[in-house]
Structures are given as C-alpha cells and as structure tokens.
Amino acid sequence: MDRIDGLRAFVAVVDSGSFTRAGQRLGISNKLVSKYVAALESQQGVTLLNRTTRSLSLTPAGTRYLGAARRVLSAVEELDAEARAEEGALTGRLRVTAPVTFGEMFAAELTRDFLADHPALSIDLHLTDRYVDLAGEGFDLALRIGVLADSSLIARRIGMTETWVVGSPDYLARRGRPTHPDDLRQHENIRDSNAAMPHRASFVVAGKVVGVALPGRITVNSAQAVRRLVLAGDGLALTPSFVVAEDVAAGRLERLLPDCAAPMLDIQALYLPQPFVPPRVSSYLDHLRARLGPLLQTAPPRDS
C-alpha cells in the first residue's frame, strides 16, 4: 500500500465519520478504505481509530497523528498543483452542493462551462435545500443564499440577488394590492423556511428600516414550491428575484412594492478551512465569480 493512500483514507474516515462515506468520498469501496487504514496502523505500530459496530472515534495517538496527516496531504496537493501549473491542468473530483432551484437554474450551466475548460476534472453536483455537513459528507464546496449561521466554514461571496414581493393577478384582484410593507400583515404570505427569518421581513421606506410580520398558513422549504403556490393565487411571497423574474416578465406574476427596498441576498460559496485550498476549488470559485453575475441578469426561462 502507498502510504499516501493510507493517509487519505484515514483523514477521509475521520472527516466523514464512517468507512462507507469515506469510500464514497474517495471513489473506492469501504472495504478498501478499511484495508488502507489497517495497513497504515500496522506501519505506524499504533491504533489510530477505535472501532465499534455503532461508532468510530480517534485514539489519543490518532488525534496526534491527524494534524500531521493533514499537513502531509496538503503538501502533496500543493506539489501536484505546482507540477501542473504550467499546463493549467486540473484533475480529480470536485463535490459541490447547492440549493435545488438555484442549482437547476444556474449551477448546472456553470458546472458544464467549467468542465469544458478542464477535461481531466469531474464534478459531483448535489442539489438539496438541506444544509449539508461538508466534512461529514465529503463535499468541497457548498453554495448558499442569504444570511448564514455562524460557523467555522470559509465563505466567499460569488454574487448577489434582490428579493421581490410578488403576487398573481388573480390573487391581487381578490385581495387588493399592498402599497406599503405594513399592508403585508393583512395578506396571506407564502413563506420559504430556507430564509433566515421566514416569518418576518425588513424594508427600507423613506430611508428608515421597517420590520414587518408575514402572517400565513403555508411555510415550505422550497423556493420552487413557493413560486408555484403564488402562481396558483394562494398568497404573496418575498422571494429571490431570479426565481420569479421570468414570470414577472411574462405577466404571470406582478412585482409589488418596487419602491420599498427589500434585503439584497448574498450568494456565497463555503468551504472547509484548510492550509492549502486545492486548485480545482480556487479555480471553480474564480469561475463562479466571473460567470454568475451575467447569468443572474438573464435568468433562463423555466417550466410553468
């Protein structure tokens, strides 16, 4: 066994919490991961991991060894990057997670463009509105929209989007059109639970921040589901502009309160803190920053 393979397997098991997830992360079987770790322990003459049928944990020796293993792998990655610097070749696999609606509209195209420039690279794009554990599930990057909870992850802004209040012509004919953010208290609001505060919103009116409650009977963890409910006339919604821009342009929805500034939302890429950011990660970040802005300005059409 190559010792580097053993180090990679050991670190992947620690980061993901299981041999199975480590194997998925490395693209090998869990049995091979177990074999690599056992061989590494035999070479070192120490037990690095406590194994039970229900859990894994680091031994004291494993805790001491982990930091050195990460430094060695980081150095190897840096050497590989230096060796390929002149050719600009990126290799390996990049695992990215993104929200479903955003991913369907933009991340897939951004990924396709990137792969066209780097034929030796592969990308695993996982779309979910769930907040994934990057270390535990073996992801290199997570794309997120809006205010982020405090964490140890490194965040890089790759774009911004407006939030719009929208409603269908049918709903507005029945319930009336709000002319001030306070009027939203008298309406049915379809809330997206992915928002930082789905039951409240802030607007800037005449230079002052106005906080407004958003009452409603439906809260759902999907921007696309919010859009469909608003199209059906079930209520109003405060949603990222790219989700509904095509519907507003086509007259299926109306943008409301355009003179009352709603929050701008950061679109951010998050990754684990590490002494050396792999070139495939830093290059993909640069690609996102350069390409996302123009795409947001010309949001693609979607099925109604």
Rank of each mutant, 00 (worst) to 15 (best):
M1C: 02
M1V: 00
D5C: 07
A9Y: 00
V11F: 01
A12I: 03
A12R: 09
S18P: 03
T20K: 07
Q24A: 09
Q24K: 02
S29Y: 06
N30S: 15
K31W: 04
L32T: 13
V33N: 09
S34P: 00
E41R: 05
E41M: 07
L49P: 06
R54S: 13
S55Q: 15
S57G: 15
T59D: 06
P60Q: 03
A61L: 14
G62V: 03
T63M: 12
Y65V: 00
A68I: 02
E78P: 01
L79A: 11
E82V: 13
A85D: 11
E87N: 11
G88N: 05
A89H: 03
L90I: 01
G92P: 07
L94H: 00
V96G: 08
P99G: 06
V100Y: 02
F102P: 08
A107G: 04
R112K: 15
R112I: 10
D113A: 15
P119D: 05
L121Y: 04
T128N: 05
Y131V: 15
Y131P: 02
E137M: 13
L141C: 04
A142D: 13
R144P: 03
G146Y: 13
L148S: 06
A149E: 04
L153V: 05
I154F: 01
I154H: 05
I158Y: 03
G159E: 12
Y171K: 04
R175T: 03
R175E: 14
G176I: 12
H180I: 03
D182R: 14
Q186N: 13
S193M: 11
A196D: 11
M197P: 06
P198F: 09
G207P: 00
G207M: 11
V209S: 13
P215G: 11
P215V: 05
P215S: 08
P215C: 13
A225C: 01
R228D: 11
L229V: 10
A232W: 06
L236R: 00
S241D: 09
V243E: 10
A245N: 04
A245V: 02
A249Y: 12
A250C: 10
L253G: 09
E254F: 10
D259M: 12
P263Y: 09
D266L: 12
I267Y: 01
I267K: 06
I267L: 09
Q268H: 00
Q268Y: 00
L270V: 03
Q274G: 14
V277C: 02
P278T: 02
S283E: 14
S283C: 14
D286L: 11
L288I: 08
L292V: 04
G293S: 14
P294F: 11
P294W: 10
L295Y: 00
Q297R: 13
A299N: 03
